[in-house]
Each structure stands twice: as structure tokens, then as C-alpha cells.
Nucleic acid binder design. Sequence first.
DNA 1: TAGAGCCTAGACAACGTTGTCAGATCCGGA
DNA 2: TCCGGATCTGACAACGTTGTCTAGGCTCTA
Lengths: 349, 349
Amino acid sequence: MSSSAQPARSPSPRYGARPTMKDVAARAGVGLKTVSRVVNGEPGVTPDTERRVQDAITALGFRRNDSARILRKGRTASIGLVLEDLADPFYAPLNRAVEEVARAHGALLINGSSAEDPERERELALAFCARRVDGLIIIPAGDDHRYLEPEIAAGIATVFVDRPAGRMDADVVLSDSFGGAREGVAHLVAHGHRRIGFIGDRPRIHTATERLRGYRAAMAAAGLPVDESWVSLGTTAPERVRTEAERMLSGPQPVTALFAGNNRVTATVVRVLARSQRPVALVGFDDLELADLLSPGVTVVAQDAARLGRTAAERLFRRLDGVAEPPQRVELPTRLIIRGSGELPPAEG
Amino acid sequence: MSSSAQPARSPSPRYGARPTMKDVAARAGVGLKTVSRVVNGEPGVTPDTERRVQDAITALGFRRNDSARILRKGRTASIGLVLEDLADPFYAPLNRAVEEVARAHGALLINGSSAEDPERERELALAFCARRVDGLIIIPAGDDHRYLEPEIAAGIATVFVDRPAGRMDADVVLSDSFGGAREGVAHLVAHGHRRIGFIGDRPRIHTATERLRGYRAAMAAAGLPVDESWVSLGTTAPERVRTEAERMLSGPQPVTALFAGNNRVTATVVRVLARSQRPVALVGFDDLELADLLSPGVTVVAQDAARLGRTAAERLFRRLDGVAEPPQRVELPTRLIIRGSGELPPAEG
DNA sequence: TAGAGCCTAGACAACGTTGTCAGATCCGGA
DNA sequence: TCCGGATCTGACAACGTTGTCTAGGCTCTA
């Protein structure tokens, strides 16, 4: 055992030897503050001095440490986005739209997936707050967001998207789930259907219950009864959705049409119907890629995910610019896209 | 004008009045370091003291400022991901997979889209470096990454995905584009096609040229000539792809099959073929949602985007754990999924 | 009861940057 | 020649946290 008594001078020399402004200053033979001025393009530096500093910067490969800058300035120029699943094609355009707006405001984007787990949503949001993001955009997984109150009070602007905050008054941008579902179901009714099934997401999710409410409203408006066996709320796992769809399609009083509560449900139902003998009408909430190429094409109630994200992000940055208004609820319209599956007439089993 | 001579004490009082450890310490009647110990769960604090501190923390709504922590510790527990487009369904699962691995290692994810613009890729990567991310995962847009050399030398681990780094030796994880394309084209040849078109992405993109190389190799292996009018590289904008596909399908020597170089191209080609009188065979690179439900189903060469992301992230964290090996190139296999469109026999115009 | 040893607690410096302020230099005009 | 003013520059403190080091109180044993 050689006693290699390394003194371990500095606490943690992780980075090779990251030069600091001090190093640059020493090399250029100027003061620390002058380097800061050059790096930040502040006025009051002679061209000659500036060149000397620039040379030292490139020679040493200096890059400003934004952690220190953030600590000093108090603003991070970054925002956090908590969404349900980075891999869900519905949220991808929303993510991108938020990024574009952030970029236009010179901010970076930190994001994470809650996986519909309220605890994980909370962890992520609070971790972002600890990083002192300037603002948060959240697609709620949980139904109680009071944990964010101290953060918001401390100045972290927060906007909710797709679903409202729970037990709290805050800005929210969402699609008109109720109206969209009502329109979609009314469309099926208009094509002669009287027994219409509804397969949606878990009832804890706001949009799921809103869409169910829209379904019931459309049925009621048409004077149609709703048999509770036609209604199914639960996970969007393909097995469950398939079982439920098959159940509704069989039995003594089978449905002649289905309304699918979101993109994942629609994709599964399309697969089930592809194997069905009898033609069954379908309207889905959320658009799907290639939906127009299936036969029949899938009629959907489309929401504009990119616009949701853009609107929320713009609202956030208005808040960051100091606009103080009471929390606002923005509801974006949906659009019924007719492609064939929703226009099939009722066919008895 | 009332002369409200506010002295503006602190430089920028952005945050309402974020309490610090000092405030907590004062309120709990303990020393600063004791608060730090409690917050970080370090040993050596009496249960009684700990409770007093915890009470003060909740009373004040304290949350540790990670910017200061990062500055002090030198590690940020965050990684940066630069991809091409957050909204591209192909990259979404990759994004998610990277996030999962980061989460398992207690790291946050910062990400951004390069939009295939090398300059923007560079800006993003360097902005992440200024934030002192521990590591970078990059889907290259440019073909010269030497700008990262100082950063890597300074200790920022970097792994490239989907395409290799330009003019630099670095870790890279990618799919076997050459082999996949060759297999897909050979599949068409095996079904009797002799005139096969290839529509790919811009030649600056590594995967695009690799897939073209695979196409040529398969044709050559079958002893088939390639007419240059059958080959098209350029943007994946639908208009261009449509024009090119229509061009190849008409004329004196029309192709009887098409190979589509990526998911966006495939989606457009499927639309073109849907309107074609004559059945034309198609194999696409990258899988598509609902591809199995079209008629015919779309035969594809699928890559596992999630595995790409997972593999790259795991490699990155091994590097961060101090594994020092020469840069490594990992090539993941692709998988031919037979669904019908690739098995159509040649049909003369 | 004294000394050794352990445990808890706090003082202090440092991380790398930026805001404040004051010193140094140079110019033109009287 | 000297002064006012403008311009350029650097010393210093502060941002909020963590690592180091030392002080003080306690227990235990001889």
C-alpha cells in the first residue's frame, strides 16, 4: 500500500479544469469585471482590451458558468413542462409548440413525464421549482395542486394545460371536451344511431369526465336513454378497451356506434372493429395519423395540440412580463372531421 | 410626482421573498449548517433539533435553491438532449426512453429541437453546456461537431444517437440503416420487382445516404441496374415527395415498387399510392402507427427508437460513472415487418 | 474526578458570476 | 497650466449553498 497522500485540495474537481473568468482575466492581463463585460457585450470596453479578452477566451476555451450567473441574477431563463407522457403522439406537438415559444423568449425547456402519477407530477414540478425555473406549464395528473401555492406565491408563474388545476384557482388552457364530445355523439345520433357506446379514460381525469358529460348531454338532447352497460371509464390499456368494446358489441342489445374518448382508445377500437363482421360506426376524440387512409376513414373530434401548447406558453410569458390579472380559463374549440366511420348507418347484429 | 425614493436595496428582488436557509436557521434558532444538514438528510442532528428545523421549513415554505447547490457542488444532475423535432413521432419514444434512464439516475432532462439546422443544434448544445449539464445526448443536425471538443475535454460526457458525430470520434448509437434498407429492398426484389424507386431524406443526413447505399447494394446484389431517375433525395416535405413519387410512377419505364426512406416519406407515399390505379409495392423505413390497419398493411423496416434512446442514455451514465473507454459505435438491428404492401407482385402500368 | 472519546452544532470560506462604486486616464477649453 | 467631465477599468461584496474545521457538551472508564 503506497501512502499516496493526495491532499484532495478542492472539494470536487469534476470538470477537467474549467477556466473561469478569473483565469481569463489573468491571461488577458485585465480585471475580472472587464471579462464579464466582454462576455456579456456590455459597453465601456476599448476595442483593444476587448480583443485581448476574446483571445484569452478562445485560447482557454472559456464558457460562462450559467449556474453562477443564475444564482446572482435570480432568473434562470428556463421553464419547466410536466406532461403525461413524452412519447404520446398527442402531446408531442404540444411539447414542440411550448419549446418554440420558449425559444422565442430566450428560455430553455426542462421537461418530464408524470405517467399519470400524481406523486410523480408533484416530484417533477417541485424539482423544477428547486431549479428555480421562471415558470411552469403542467398537464395535471393529480387533482390537488395546492402544493404549488408557496411556489406561485414566491413568483413562479404557472399555467395548466389540457386539464384544470385541482383545488386551486390558476390559469388554464384546454379544449372544449364537453362540447366536442357532445358534437361527436350528436353526429352519430344524426346518422340514425340510438344505441351508442362510450369508452373513455379513468374518471379521475378531468377531460374523461367532461367528454362523458358531453356524451350524456347529446343523448339526453335527442331524448335517448343511456344503458349503463354502454358506458366504460377506465385505463386506456388495449386489453381493457378491447374487452369493453367487444362486450358492447355483443349481447342482446348491442350498440351500433361507439364514441372513443381519446387517441389511444380510438386506435384500439379501430383494431377491434376491423375484425367485426357487422359495420359499426365510430367517432373518436383526437385525430390520428393516417386516419384518413383507413377504410372507412376515421371520423374524429380533433383538438389542436400545438395551439394548446402555444397558447399556454404565451400566457406564461405574459405573466413573466409582469401582467397581473386574475387567473383565466381559455377554452379552445374542437373540430369535427368527417371521414366515413362516423357516417355509417346503424346495422343490426 | 411623489418622490418615492425606493432605495432598491437588493439587485433584483424577482422572487416574492424566497426564504433561504439563513431565514430558516434564524426562525428555528439554529445555525445555517444545521439547516443544510436537515434538508439533505445528513446525520448528526438531534431529533428535537430536526423537528424545529422542519417546522421552520414548512412555516416559511422553504425550498432549497438548486442553483446555489449546483454552483457549490459542481454537478447539476441534469442532462441535455438535442433532437431534431420534439413533435416527430419517431423521436418521441426516444425522448421518453432517455427521460426514464435519466430519472433512474436522479437526473433531470433539458431538451430542444434543432429543426435540422446545424447552427441551432450548436446553440442548443452550447447553451446546455453553459448550464453545466453533466452530459449531452445529441441527434446530429450538422456534420462538424468539433465545436464540442473543449466541452468534452472539460468533462461533459457526450453520446450521439441515430447519426454519428461529424469530424470527431465519439460514442454513437444508431440503427443499421444500411442493412435495414438492403433487407427491405431485397424483399421487394424477392417478390419479383426489377424497377424499384427510392425516395429519401436530404443527402446531408447520414442515415439518408446509408439507406441509399443499402438500396444500391441490394440492387447490385440482384444484378439489377439502377436508373438514376428512380432515386430521389431531398426534403421530406409532402409536396416534393408526392411529385417525385408521381414522376416515378409515370413515364415510359415506371417503377413497380417504392422504398421510402423514413416515416414521413412513407406516410406521404401511402397517400399517393392510395390514389393510384395500378397496385404498387411499398416498403418503408420506420414503423407507423395504424400501419397494420391499412389495406394493404404497410410493410416496414422498423427500428426501435426507444431502445436507441435507452442504449444511448445508459452509455452516457456509464461514462458519468467514470468508465473510460475509447469511443464506441453501437449499431442496433432493424426488423422487417411484413404486412402486405411489400409483397404485392409487380404490376405493369 | 480526570481524561479520552463521541456526538452535536456552528463559524467560515468557497463555488463563479454580476452590480456598485470609486479610481485612473485622457480630452478639450479656459 | 489646470480643471471639469467623460470614459475606461478594477476592487469588492453579494447571490445561497456545502465542505472543513473547531468548539462545547456529554458519556464512559479507570
